[in-house]
Design a protein around this nucleic acid. Structure first.
Lengths: 344, 344
DNA sequence: ATGAAAGCGCTAACAT
DNA sequence: ATGTTAGCGCTTTCAT
């Protein structure tokens, strides 16, 4: 099946003009007589001429598209981020090309190479939970491909980054549980490689220590696949509940881990918050429709996408090499609901 | 900022070969001596050569990318469809470019034109709730751009389509409510223009009529924006509850309308299912974590994306013009949970 | 076995 | 005011 659009050459032939005249007329050059312009414009309109963006890209060495590398679209947080990305990109005339790593390092590498070469003008990246080697990014970054990291970042590459204050968020969540009388607080979190995991762990730890509670390694469970695999979460939960000093509360990191934990708890017929309290990082749209309603830390996902995209486009469109980079730290929101507050 | 990848010309210059030799060596042509091949391959590897896909596209008049036009990504159904699309496209070597209409006709038209021209080899489309004029698609379709519609389709364009049996799904849902003793069943649905809306309405209607219940226009409320606007759903609900013969059950169409209705019901302090029962079309990941757990009709979203993509790629890669088209009808799943069953 | 040249659609420098 | 030409990166005849 072949789709044969009208080209500038076709117009020229039809009107007895050279391609350059047509080109100039189309872009309203002052050198072209208004007669010719009118003629060309009208004909172009009539045949529904659309410039071939690929030819333009080849010529101008830019594609007006940006690549997005995330682990998963079907995840509230990331789909909201992508909405933010889209809202800016669209207005600035960029296509958004999305690729999912599904938390696989291999797949991330392939996707990045696929996007790179020349097909995108820049990259918005949130690392997969398996990624420890940044060579695929470093390589491209050194060649001058603009990259902005968001949420799951690396300090091996110096560029713009957009993150949230994960330390504070985890600290706040843990403190909230402590103040509500919970003393054996566990942390079910994502892959230990991720920046967000490390930051959250620190916040959790410090909240415990500063409030006279011990930090117990056994109370921290990592889901290396970020909760992609249900069994992973169930396993973590079962392990935690086997400890003799069984935890009375969880702080869960990430949408999937949070809802996965709730499901697992429900399957075990445990009551929340009576048997186990829960505070989760989650961008679920409907935490108050959950049973019980869920105390959440919500990330400013949409804003994150917007800020990251603005930063990326600023690099892309910068006339001179960008040498000074910033890390934007956005604030999270904390919503106290039923899952973390003991009923009187 | 400029990103300057290695070209075939660079390799040629470095090795003292012509570009055509390098090109052929790279693609393993039998005309090239194995010595030269080896030399070229090694050098290309060393400098990390990647062919410029844009140049290839220009030459081969295809971009190896497919455009997706949906109303909203941050919606379980569509993000799951996109996962299905992605799973096939990736393996077949296609990029996926996603654009969102946000249920706006204007925006849909702009997006489609943006994607078309030549930058995509085909289009996967689910119509916006405002779309009644198909000119933007017809135009491209007649020029030979492959298009496959899914979920929200039109019969004005003859091409492959992938839908679910909405009639049956709505019939089943309504029948279920009737069998559970509900007699005043309302239907809160999407824009009246959408194929899915019409099909579901028929199923709902027939279930009523075939079971001795009257079909009452007043019991049907349309959310023209597909539930994008919260007030829209609240308004529909309030109007329904103002009717003197107040409904005792709702069939809600679509993820957003379903959860929106639940939220509105909750805000009115009505009990589900005691005051009002609910069966919803929804691809929420966690219907059993909702309060009450939600009786849902679930669409095979992932499969839908896969099938649509396979059909699209089959058109794109077909040697001869495709003249025979099919409409695949997939089956929905019905999950009975608390929201639709009266407690004894 | 290798090179030279044309062409994909477009723009822009350089004629006229 | 309009035409001619070169070139973006690559493949592919058509020479040699």
């Amino acid at each position: 099946m072949k789709y044969e659009p009208v080209t500038i050459k076709d117009i020229g032939k039809a009107l007895g003009l050279s391609t350059s005249t047509v080109s100039r007329a189309l872009r309203g050059s002052y050198e072209i007589s208004s007669d010719t312009k009118k003629q060309v414009l009208e004909y172009a309109e009539k045949v529904n001429y659309r410039p071939n963006p690929i030819a333009l890209s080849l010529k101008e060495r830019r594609s007006s598209s940006i690549g997005v590398v995330v682990c998963e679209i079907a995840n509230n947080f990331f789909s909201q981020v992508i909405n933010g990305i889209d809202s800016i990109a669209y207005n600035r005339g960029y296509h958004v090309i999305i690729s999912q790593s599904h938390e696989s390092y291999e797949r991330e590498v392939v996707n990045v190479h696929h996007l790179a070469s020349r097909s995108v003008d820049g990259l918005l990246v949130s690392l997969s939970s398996e990624t420890t080697d940044m060579a695929h990014f470093i390589n491209l970054h050194e060649k001058g491909l603009p990259i902005v990291f968001f949420d799951r970042v690396t300090n091996e590459i110096i560029t713009h980054k957009v993150i949230v204050d994960n330390y504070k968020a985890a600290y706040e969540a843990t403190l909230h549980l402590i103040k509500n009388g919970y003393k054996k607080i566990a942390h079910i979190t994502s892959s230990p490689f991720l920046s967000i995991t490390k930051e959250r762990l620190e916040g959790y730890k410090d909240a415990l220590l500063e409030n006279g509670l011990a930090f117990n390694e056994k109370y921290v469970k990592y889901c290396s696949h970020g909760g992609m695999i249900v069994e992973e979460i169930e396993g973590a939960l079962h392990n935690l509940l086997k400890i003799k000093q069984k935890p009375d509360a969880f702080v869960t990191a990430g949408d999937r881990i949070t809802t996965g934990s709730l499901t697992a708890i429900k399957n075990l017929h445990l009551r929340v918050p009576e048997d186990i309290a829960l505070v989760g990082f989650s961008n679920t749209n409907i935490p108050e429709l959950l049973n019980p309603t869920l105390t959440t830390i919500r990330l400013p996902a949409f804003e994150m996408g917007q800020v990251a995209t603005e930063l990326l486009i600023s690099i892309i469109e910068s006339k001179r090499p960008v040498t000074s980079f910033e890390t934007r730290v956005l604030q999270t929101e904390f919503f106290v609901r039923e899952s973390s507050v003991k009923l009187q």
